[in-house]
Amino acid sequence: MTQFLNYLVLGLTRGSLYALIALGYTLVYGVLQLINFAHSEVFMSGAFGSYLVISAVVGNGKGTSSWEVPFVMLLGVVTGAVTAGAIAWSLERVAYRPLRRRNAPKLAFLISAIGASFFLSQLFGKMFNRFTNNQFPPFFNDNSVAFTIAGAQVRVIQVVDILAALVMMVLLDRLVNKTKLGRSIRAVSEDAPTAALMGIDIDRTISRTFVIGGLLGGAAGFLFGLNFSFFNTMGFLPGVKAFAAAVLGGIGNIRGAMIGGLLLGIVENIIPTLPWVGTEWTDVVAFIVLVLVLMFRPTGILGERLGRAA
């Protein structure tokens, strides 16, 4: 039971990060009908961006007093988000917009995405010496326990991850449903040419959508790096899993990405606790989920429609 709960909390933690990343895939898919395969590197850039700022602020982290910790974490979320938002913005400008101008076929976008993904990953590898296990300076006690349920210890960092992700998801939901920017994103997702007839600048909306996806992904990059470790190829596995989560929830559907992320995180961590299975099956489970969804419900949990009306 205790073990089960421990893995449930781990699943929630990872799941909320998957959800943040999955939102980036799903938002961009909504406006462009394109899987932005470079999004995993946008996520990764958030970890490095926040690392540069945080290590400059707290040094080796030994001198950080406990009241400063929440502020440092907030700083990390913000700087991670901003870095990745900037990377996502540039990505759209360099790798996608020129293709859109030329009405390039979908395959060209895909190749461009993969190229951009390798480029960013190798660029950060070169800049940061390709260490495989970079850690944030220990500015807080990684093991401090927030509370215990039925013997299962919930660490502070896990609470931070989950709460931060929840707050960002609520904010995004409000942004999409209540603001003008959100309405323009929804309109472009539903029917871009008609959105233009309403006075919506499609290019600007696409650009802002990339930035929003980048902000969320970058914040996740910081939280992921803080919880585990970070390196230039760190984006690959969480990226592919978040993509699976977005498909699970229904690609293009914002709430679907949130649900899909949480669900995938929980499932991939719970199933391996069953007898005869083991934690080495975690990644396998995630991809089995992807395959099963694609086979039996390709539109995902909340996606009723894939083909849009002409």
């Binding site: 929804r186 539903e190 029917d191 040419p193 008609t194 233009a196 007839l197 006075g199 600048d201 499609i202």
Partner: peptide, 24 residues
């Protein structure tokens, strides 16, 4: 001039096939 700018002049186009936003 792109469509989204012409809307500001008061040129409003009801396209063929209606094109309402179905999920709104």
């Amino acid at each position: 001039t792109p469509a989204h700018k012409l809307v500001d002049l008061g040129i409003c186009h009801v396209p063929e096939g209606r094109h309402v936003f179905p999920r709104m």
